[in-house]
């Protein structure tokens, strides 16, 4: 099976702090990581490969040059090949423009690899924008069926069986290839890279695709200009006043105090 995994490099939102003086996000020094949900997508592909070693895993990212680091990490974990889509003309794309560019890039990668992909895996959402839109939009551009919020995938004779998170348990969805699947957080941890793979990944060449190669892209649908949604403004939500810490002589007294406070606040 041939699987393409879309990965985005994102700032680690756990590390983002707010500057109390200016009330803005401090982005300097915030480490960049592989979007965790994309890590789960890569793990799902790796698990398929564990059972079927002739599986080929290609990772694709769109972003600035530094996104190479994220692709390198994916090579070290499980990917066989990596492509980076990078061009000033693609900057400022919203999700619709991003998914359009990725769909054209996938066609190009298929041409270069001289093979079709059976499945495209995405993360459920990127933790910077939290939109969860690129996956389904990419599926529509490609004309593929989609399954979102997957935990695990098994390759069976009649197609793929996707274990999907549902409101009150799990669902198993059957879907034929080619298809697109987005992944959420499973209960198991994704694998770590081995030393051997790490060394190999460092030496690996990451193929670049720019607007010059991706000639099928209509510039009217890419970048800031090609994006139907526009960010009017952003702001840091007003922060709460520091809360009241209840600390009486005894736990009993504290419980009583807490009860009092909640009663006075009319919430119980």
């Amino acid at each position: 099976m041939n699987i393409l995994v879309c990965v985005k490099q994102v700032p680690d939102t756990n590390e983002i702090k707010i500057d109390p003086d200016t009330n803005t996000l401090i982005r300097d020094g915030v480490p960049s990581i592989v979007n965790p949900f994309d890590g789960y997508a890569l793990e799902a592909a790796a698990r398929i490969k564990d059972n079927a070693p002739d599986t080929k895993i290609v990772v694709l990212s769109m972003g600035p040059q530094q996104a190479e680091t994220a692709l390198c990490e994916c090579l070290a974990i499980a990917a066989d090949k990596a492509y980076l889509v990078t061009d000033r003309a693609f900057g400022g794309s919203d999700t619709l423009a991003t998914s359009y560019i990725l769909s054209k890039a996938i066609e190009k990668v298929e041409e270069l690899e001289n093979e079709k992909f059976d499945a495209v895996f995405c993360g459920k959402q990127a933790i910077d924008g939290d939109t969860a839109q690129v996956g389904p939009e990419l599926a529509e551009h490609l004309g593929y069926p989609q399954v979102t919020c997957a935990l695990e995938v098994k390759s069976e004779a009649d197609g793929l069986h996707v274990y999907r998170e549902a409101e009150d348990g799990k669902e198993v969805i059957g879907v034929k290839t080619p298809c697109l699947i987005t992944f959420t957080k499973p209960s198991f941890d994704p694998r770590f890279p081995t030393i051997k793979r790490k060394i190999a990944a460092r030496k690996a060449k990451i193929a670049q695709l720019t607007a010059a190669e991706l000639t099928s892209i209509d510039p009217a649908h890419a970048g800031l200009k090609g994006s139907p949604t526009k960010v009017k403004r952003t702001y840091v939500p007003p922060r709460k006043e520091a809360g009241v810490v209840v600390k009486e002589e005894t736990v009993e007294a504290s419980a009583h105090k807490l009860f009092d406070l909640l009663s006075k606040a009319h919430v119980i």
């Binding site: 999700t95 619709l96 998914s99 939290d130």
Partner: peptide, 28 residues
Amino acid sequence: PNGRDLGPRLSCRLGTGLTADCTALDID
């Protein structure tokens, strides 16, 4: 979960913009 599966698929089919997971709505 269904709405967030449907919204982007639909916006792409219609070639229009979608804003996900809003918490406030107004007219500009």
